Simulated scan of single mutants.
Amino acid sequence: MKKIYVIGIGAGDPDHLTLQAVKALNEVDAFLVLDKGEEKSGLTRLRRDILDAHVKDRSFRIVEARDPERDRDTPDYAPAVDDWRRRRADLYERFIARDLGENECGAFLVWGDPALYDSTLGILDEIAGRGAVAFDHEVVPGISSVSALLAKHRTGLNRVGRPVQITTGRRLAEGWPEGVDDVVVMLDARQAFTRHLDQDLFIYWGAYVGTEDEILVSGRLREVSDRIEELRSEARARKGWIMDTYLLRRD
């Protein structure tokens, strides 16, 4: 039986890896690394840095494939995501079927934690449901961007007896979630926090957390919003991409 590890590798710092993750890395015969284009080549380099730092036996193979493009301009968000996930599933299925020998072990290196805001586990479920290739898989948790962000800001995710919601910029743009005062927002391309300047909110914001390009800002939202927009725009222009996360906290 072929085996797949889904390994959480943290937010970007090679030191984020757990001992369990390091052990799993050293059992892998082949890693699938998706090429996201020249602009995001730094993400591929970070993965290679992690392997250089933690894998003792250099006999493993790296299989590269071009990550399918997602249509980000269509108003039909859900169908576009479904199509993108299907094409990714085709890539993953080919990797398992063609690039792994019987009884070999393959791995997907997942930013942050595989169970939080990532599609890998759902895609593997889809492949298993197709029934064309047999494999077993194991999930290794990692340090999420949320955990890394809050550690950098030296604050906690929750307050006593109060709920937390993790959502997207798309959802936050539609309105503040009911029944919560602490909201974590992942990858907000729309900068939806600017729609809530009328509320008394505190923000803990970070981009490229755990990497050499890390940027952190915290403060009253209405006082630091312009600064975050400026930093975000400059960073995106300089690198061609940005990954950011933030916690909004209502008094």
Rank of each mutant, 00 (worst) to 15 (best):
V6T: 05
G12E: 02
D13P: 12
D13F: 08
P14F: 12
H16F: 10
A30M: 06
V33W: 07
L34T: 03
D35G: 00
E38Q: 13
K40L: 15
K40V: 06
G42R: 13
T44M: 15
R47V: 11
I50N: 11
L51R: 08
D52G: 07
V55C: 14
V55P: 09
F60I: 07
R61V: 13
R66P: 00
P68V: 12
R70M: 14
D71G: 08
R72P: 00
P79R: 13
A80G: 06
V81L: 02
D82R: 15
W84P: 03
R87S: 08
D90P: 01
D90F: 08
E93L: 08
A97C: 04
A97N: 10
E102S: 10
C105P: 00
W111L: 05
G112K: 08
L116R: 01
D118L: 01
D118M: 03
D118K: 00
G122Q: 12
I123E: 15
D125R: 12
I127A: 05
G129Q: 07
A132K: 12
A132Y: 03
E138R: 12
G142C: 09
I143V: 15
S144V: 09
A148H: 03
L149N: 09
A151E: 13
A151W: 09
H153R: 06
R154D: 14
R162C: 01
I166N: 00
T168Y: 01
R171L: 14
E174R: 14
W176R: 01
G179S: 03
V183D: 02
M186Y: 09
A189W: 03
R190S: 14
F193R: 00
F193W: 06
F193C: 00
R195Y: 09
H196T: 02
Q199C: 00
D200F: 02
L201R: 02
I203P: 10
Y204M: 04
Y204T: 04
W205P: 13
W205Y: 14
D213E: 15
D213L: 14
E214S: 06
E214N: 03
E214V: 11
I215P: 04
L216F: 07
V224Y: 05
S225D: 07
R232K: 12
R236N: 10
R236G: 03
A237I: 11
R238H: 09
G240S: 02
I242Y: 04
I242E: 02
L247Q: 11
L247P: 12
R250Y: 05
R250K: 15
R250L: 13
